[in-house]
Every structure is written in C-alpha cells, then in structure tokens.
Design a protein around this nucleic acid. Structure first.
Lengths: 222, 222
DNA sequence: GTAATCCTTACGGAAACCCGTAAAGCGCCA
DNA sequence: TGGCGCTTTACGGGTTTCCGTAAGGATTAC
C-alpha cells in the first residue's frame, strides 16, 4: 500500500472520513491540509527532504476566507504539483459530476482516479485508492457512468469556454472580439464569434444568450 | 441533551462526522437518512408511535440519482416536516453561504440554527446543537458574519426571483409578461418587468441580462 | 493549376434589449 | 369630487442580439 499520502480538503467533516479510510488501509504517513497553498508547500518540502509523497487525494473546490491564497482550486494545485513531481499518483475526490470537467482532469492534468462524493463514496474511495496502487488507469467511481470516448462534450473546447466566460461577465460581442484580438485568440471577428455562440445555443438547446449562460453555469462550464 | 435526533445527509463522508458529533454529545438515539423522502417518513412514523424526534439536522442539497423522489432538497423536507411536527428543532448543515438563502431559512422555514460546512464546522456544529438545546434563537456559525437586519438582500423578493428564473429559462420579456398574466402575478406589463430587471441590474452591477443571470446563478438565487 | 471545400469575416434586416420620458391607473386625503 | 403621490403601463429611439446570405481567403483534392 501507499506509504505517504497527502489529503487536500477544506471541509473538516469530510477530511475526517478520508483520513479514516487511509488509516484502515494501513497507510503509515497521512498528512492533511485545508488550503491548496499548504499542499504545494508540503509536496515541495517532502521532495527536498527526499521523502516524497506517493499519493495525493484532493478536492476541487475550496472555500475562500480571510486568508490570502495563490492556489484557489484543486485544479490549480494539481497543475502546480505536476510541475515539481509529475509522477505522483493523483486521486480527485469531489462533488462535481459533470463529464466535461472530469474529462479534462484526466486528459489535461493526468489524474489517476476520480471519485464523486455521494451516498456510497467511502467505499468508492477505498476501491479507487487500491486500484490506483495497482496501477490501474482512469478509475471512475461507479455512479459516474459516462462514456470516455463520447465525443460530444470533448468538442467544447477552451475557445468556447472563453466566449462563455466573457459573456457571463457582461461583455457584448464587440468587446469579446476586441479582447480576443488583444489576446491573439483566433478567430476573433464578431461574426465568427457570433456563429460560434449560435452553435453553442443549438448544442445546448438554448433560446438566447441569457438562457445559454444559465445552462453553462448549470453544467459548470463557467 | 436531545434524546432522539434525525440526520438527513446524502454524502456518507459527511454524515459520518455528524453522527460522530452526536455520539460524543451522548445522544441516545441517532437515525440517519440519505434521502429527504425517507426523512419525512421517519418523522411521521415516530409521531405515530408517540416517540417523536426532538431535533433534525439536515443538508440543503441532495444529489439526484436513479431513485424517484418527491422531496428534492432540505428546504422541501423542512417545509413538509413543519406541516406535521412544527415544534421540532431544526439545524441546517450545508455548504451554502449566501445570505439571501440563509435568511429565508430562518424567516420562512423557522430553522433554529445554520451551520456552514467549512474548515472548522465540526466544532461549530457541536456548539450549534448545544445552543439549540438551550433554546437560543437564530444561531449562525461564526464564519458567516452578515447582519441579520441588513435590508439589502431582503428586498429581493419572490417576484424578482420569478423574473430571474424565467429569464434563465430563455424567456423573453413578452413571454414573461404573458406568463405573469396567466399566473395573475402583478405587475405584469412588459414595461414594469423591464423596470424591475433594470433595478436588479443596478443592484448587482450587471451590464446586461446575460451578466445579470450569471451573477444570480453565482448567488444561488436561481 | 484549378476546382471544391471549409473557415473566417462582412453585411443587412428583423427581433429583442436598453433606457429615458411621459401618460394612465389607483389609493389616499382633504 | 378633485388634487396629490405612487405605481404601473405605454411609447420611442438607440443599441445589441439574432439569423440568413454572401464575399474573401486558406487548405485540400485531383
């Protein structure tokens, strides 16, 4: 079994359960942090001491409070850790159940397992830890049964997300076009952007921009 | 201390912690349900048996799965319970931290305490249970420090929420007007509705309708 | 080298919005 | 009854979205 595990989870009520699972699995060293920044520090320290962690279990969303932080989410934490210790095994344990979000975690951040917090997630988490230890790939908790090869949501790319983000911030077409030109994102003609928004509206069956952003929010795309 | 407590919480990783707190407080009878419907049934059964619960601790949001349910949220559960056993003490334990949502829980559903899931929520929950037992009123976990008498968010009433809801569903002004006429909600002229939306835009500093709905989603208003 | 195709951009008219102003409706009170 | 204040509604013009059509440019096929 894993020898040294780091848990990043802000909710104390949940971390309690995670740590309990790790103890049952007889993991000798279990550390727990409530802020992403702390997590990165611990990873770096362990590397410097030549006693690196071999598993990270992290949540995605962290509450913001008085404390000033540079890493705001599990995504950012994983991204930062990948730059210093890419070979570490990574399990995400989160409430998120949108396929788009989860796919990018596997494809872009290279996580090993995703466990969705739910009615039977403690058992799911235990299984995921064991499977990860046995070098299985792309482990998904059983309540998430979407197809990994489903093209549908993969087709929505970062370009679309950028448009949706700006729309949700109150930008009008022309401003989006200007912004894209500044950032050298192409295509950036108002007409092209308009066309792309139209595709999104058809895809999500939205009547208008307002409806589209409401749906995008529900899907966790923005 | 309380003699018989019902916990309604779908996430097993969290209910574990809640039950643990109750055990530490030496509550003799602790029941736990993962679905709201189950919760209502247990309450009714206990009443019929003349052994009613004296405390309810519930989450607000419950994941939907294959199972068909009639009560979808903690709000609905409390509302239903209030109809059969209004005198039961009620504590809400949820991640939600929007003052609008929480105020309506106190004002319209008559809950006794609200504890926000956070980095120190186990201790907060314990305190809230004890304070509730001692008949204190309107207990709020300490990380939520908004003023109860703050008029700002109270001014946003169900009329505004209705507009925002319809907007987020892709309705145009005229359709909203028609819908309001059908439901005999007044005012229902397009102009009045437009004016009200304008107020909301000023209040939330939104540039346009798209922006407004994005903000409303963030605030959990729709 | 030319045609076919796709992507990007431009254009224009109808619909919906945004925003200010003005009229109509309604309760209140003298 | 008539005037006052407030709310609701109507109206109008400027802006933005919405949606179809088409021109220009790049890539691919043959």
């Amino acid at each position: 079994m894993f020898k040294k595990v780091l848990v990043a989870e802000d909710l104390d009520s949940i971390s309690l359960a995670v740590v309990q699972v790790l103890e049952e699995l007889q993991v000798p060293v279990i550390h727990h942090v409530k802020y992403c920044d702390e997590g990165l520090l611990k990873i770096k320290k362990a590397l410097a001491d030549n006693e690196p962690y071999d598993l990270l279990i992290t949540d995605l969303s962290f509450k913001s409070d008085h404390r000033k932080v540079t890493l705001n989410s599990g995504d950012e934490l994983i991204d930062a850790i990948n730059k210093v210790q890419p070979n570490i095994k990574k399990i995400v344990f989160s409430i998120e159940d949108k396929s788009y979000r989860i796919k990018t975690l596997f494809n872009e951040l290279g996580i090993n397992a995703y466990v969705s917090k739910g009615r039977n997630s403690i058992a799911e988490l235990r299984n995921a830890i064991e499977s990860t230890f046995n070098n299985e790939e792309k482990i998904l908790s059983s309540d998430l049964s979407f197809n990994f090869n489903d093209k549908a949501l993969i087709e929505i790319e970062s370009y679309d997300i950028s448009i949706l983000k700006l729309l949700s911030q109150g930008y009008i077409l022309e401003s989006i076009s200007k912004e894209f030109k500044d950032l050298s994102i192409t295509p950036n003609g108002t007409s092209s952007i308009e066309k792309r928004i139209n595709k999104l509206k058809i895809y999500f069956k939205a009547n208008n921009n307002v409806h589209l952003i409401a749906i995008a929010k529900d899907f966790g795309l923005v």
